[in-house]
Structures are given as structure tokens and as C-alpha cells.
Design a protein around this nucleic acid. Sequence first.
DNA 1: CACTTGACCTGTCCGC
DNA 2: TGCGGACAGGTCAAGT
Length: 294
Amino acid sequence: MPELPEVETVKMGLKRLLPGLVVTNVKHDWPKSFPNTKAEVGEFLIGATIIDVRRRAKVLMIDLSSKYSLVIHLKMTGQLVFRGKNSFGAGHPTDSLIGKLPDKSTRVSITFKNSERLYFNDQRKFGWMRLMPTIEISNIDFMRKVGPEPLEPDFSANDFIKRLHKRKNSKIKAVLLDQTIVAGVGNIYADESLFAAKIHPFSQVSAIPQSRLKILHQELRAVLFLSIKKGGSTDRNYVDALGRRGSYIDFALVFRKENQPCPTCGHEIIKIRVAGRGSHICTHCQKLYKRSRN
DNA sequence: CACTTGACCTGTCCGC
DNA sequence: TGCGGACAGGTCAAGT
């Protein structure tokens, strides 16, 4: 499930591969995955040159010379995989987890002038890609409401705490997952950062001491930075722009570690449900800050 | 208004 | 071996 580090990894890969390429053909089968009309594609995508690749929260943007952009959300099982003569510049073809493309999960294929290709695969069809004017991206509802980038140098602990308190009556995990509070955090990094900060995910925001939230701010950033360094987490589906897995999951302390000993204290890690999500915790290390009832 | 739950999907896994 | 159902979780819409 692509979260900030995974989307950032894909972005860095595509930014190295795509700029300068000219689109010659586009194939798409599933309208929800790519809702644009043939006319729009013909006018603003075919023949356009790729200028830049950007990320905001978990959203990718591929900017085109037509002043349009491809805006992409990978949601749970989306993949963007590039195939071409430069695809293996940073690794070896056998590093790829993906076989022959297109495959049955391919929703969109974009062909470039030199016959290189970019594939948008999405098993569960939750993800989407759409072509729209670049200047209108900031008007998308999601973009208007999304919170700050947690890895920006000016994202301070005070900002973080202030924003968390917008939902002071909610469980801390639900708030971390709320994209309008902080951008880019999903289930993996919520669990890992809460464990590192020794906070039980069920804790009510207003009951957690400021000093603890300050540590959470620090740990969240540390976890996200480390994951980018490791190329993200390949839990089941995620791959980078060259189809390779990320290795952060090998460094995870609690995520998907139920029934295993806590690396800190040895108590068994358990899996519970918080805010409708599977959550991995050590009840011995992670303190539950309860509501104070007034 | 604040907050929680369900829908969108398909592949995988578990129990019978 | 086959089959039904639970489960995975990002985001938006609908519900409490």
C-alpha cells in the first residue's frame, strides 16, 4: 500500500526516467482507472513531452508540455512501472518483481516515441490516473484540504501538535491517518511511529502529553526518512518505477509482526482494530492515554 | 459539527 | 480439492 515513502520512491525513479520522452500512444481499458475521453487524450497527451514528475502527499503528478498533467493515485495496489532501454540503469533486470507487461492488472499503457513504455497496473482498481490542466491540480478537493508534508524542513513539532489537536477527541491513530492533518501517513508508518513513540493507538489526542507528541513528531519523520532510504515497504504489491521491491519492511518493528516478541521488551506483539484498521502494538511498551472526562 | 463506518475492488488465505 | 467468507487499507460518501 503506497504511502508517502513508496510514492516518493516511485517519483524519484520516474523523474530520472521520463522527462524528455514524447508520448505516442495510450491504451486504457477501465474507465474508473482513467476517465478521460479519447479527444482529451488525443489533444493533450499524445504528442506531448514529459517535463517533470512531482509528488504531493500520496499523489503523483507527471507534467506535460501541453500544460496538462497526469495526476495519479496508486491507492492500495497501484503500480507505475517503466520498461525501456534505460530501465535497468540503476539495477539489473532480474531485480524486477514484475513479469511480462502488460499483464491482467494493467489498466493504462503509455507508449513513447522510442517505444519505451510506462504501465499503470492496479489489481484492485481503487487507484486512478487522470489527465487535467496543470494549473487546476491545486483546485482538486483533496489538494485543497490535504495537510502539510511531514518531511519538509519547516514542519515543526509545534505545527504537528497544533494540527493533531484539530481532532483532539479522536484516537491518535485515526488522526495520523487523516490526510487533512498530515499528508502521506498510512497504516504502516502510523503503527511504526506510534510504537517508536510508545503511544497506544487508541489514545485520545487531548490526553497525550505534549512531550510525547513531540517525540511522535520526531519518530514519524525518522520512520518516513528511513523508509525512503530503503525504497519503501513491499508488503504485498508495491514496487518502484523499475518494478523492484522496497526493503523497509525488514526494518519494521511491529507492522505485520503479530505473535512475535516485541524488539524492546519481549512481550508478544498483538494485532487489534483501531479506526477500522489492523493495528500492531506492544501493550507493554505503548501507553494508553485515556480521556479525562471533562 | 465531530467523528465513525461502509463502499469501492480483487487476490489470498483460512476453515470446512 | 473446492468453496465461501473474511481480510487487506486509501479515500470519499454516507451515516450516527
